[in-house]
Design a protein around this nucleic acid. Structure first.
Length: 224
DNA sequence: TCTCACACCTTTGAAGTGG
DNA sequence: CCACTTCAAAGGTGTGAGA
């Protein structure tokens, strides 16, 4: 199956994108659609690092309509959403020329760690690609997905039955900008508020980061 | 723009504990 | 045995300064 990628809009009204896609009796639900929609409305950004960075949000699906006894491999690929490179300018993303060529030889896919499994196994639990890591290191040997910073990408879920043809599912709201430093402050705030690993940066109640810093400074001052 | 050391946090899994 | 708790190590965060 081929896909037409949506045109770039920067932000879009909520509810534009389906949380459910169906192809040949197979239905895929983007389970964390609400979080993706929040990020997408600010244009999602994903950090690239040399050693590899997890995505947040990550792709989390619920599948139905698979043949229970059949074996399937589930794979996530991340492909360019368009041919441009971008810059963050005046609080907006704007195209700034033709992007880097997407090296097919270098492009990588991420096979879910339960692959292959029976259809029944895939359908009884959520399928989360939280282990997937993104890197800008062209010489990466860890098998991470290699992307170019300041380019726009879209994840695709591939459902591959043992011998039949591959089914590909694309949720436009999972599109993101690859960056090495967050450009949009609103994205940083969304990450901090939603990702458990970033809890240390939340400003809540009397235990805020600012208060802790002040306390620490006071401590050092009193000790010295 | 990119990289790194860092404080701060969650997650993981082994070891301990009681029924 | 099993279920639950405790604990320390491993490892995921954005930061902020320097390149």
């Amino acid at each position: 199956p081929s896909f037409v990628f949506p045109t770039f809009q920067g932000s879009s009204p909520e509810g534009d994108f389906p949380a459910v896609l169906t192809h040949k009796d197979v239905t895929v639900t983007l389970e964390n659609n609400n979080v993706w929609k929040q990020f997408h409305s600010c244009t999602t950004e994903m950090i690239l690092t040399k050693q590899g960075r997890r995505m947040f949000p990550y792709c989390r699906y619920r599948l139905s309509g698979l043949e229970p006894m059949r074996m399937y491999t589930l794979v996530l690929s991340i492909v360019p959403a368009d041919q441009y490179k971008y810059r963050w300018s005046n609080s907006k993303w704007e195209p700034t020329g033709i992007g880097e060529h997407h090296d097919q030889g270098l492009s990588r896919v991420f096979s879910h760690h339960y692959s292959p499994s029976q259809g029944s196994a895939w359908m009884t639990s959520l399928v989360s690609f939280y282990k997937l890591k993104l890197t800008n290191n062209m010489s990466d040997e860890e098998g991470h997905i290699i992307l170019h910073s300041m380019h726009r990408y879209i994840p695709r879920l591939h459902v591959i039955p043992a011998v039949d043809e591959c089914m590909t599912f694309v949720f436009p709201q999972t599109e993101f900008m690859a960056v090495t430093t967050y450009q949009n402050f609103r994205i940083t705030q969304l990450k901090i508020n939603h990702n458990p690993f970033a809890k240390g940066f939340r400003e809540e109640g009397s235990c805020s980061r600012l208060n802790r810093i002040i306390t620490k400074v006071r401590h050092v001052t009193e000790a010295g």
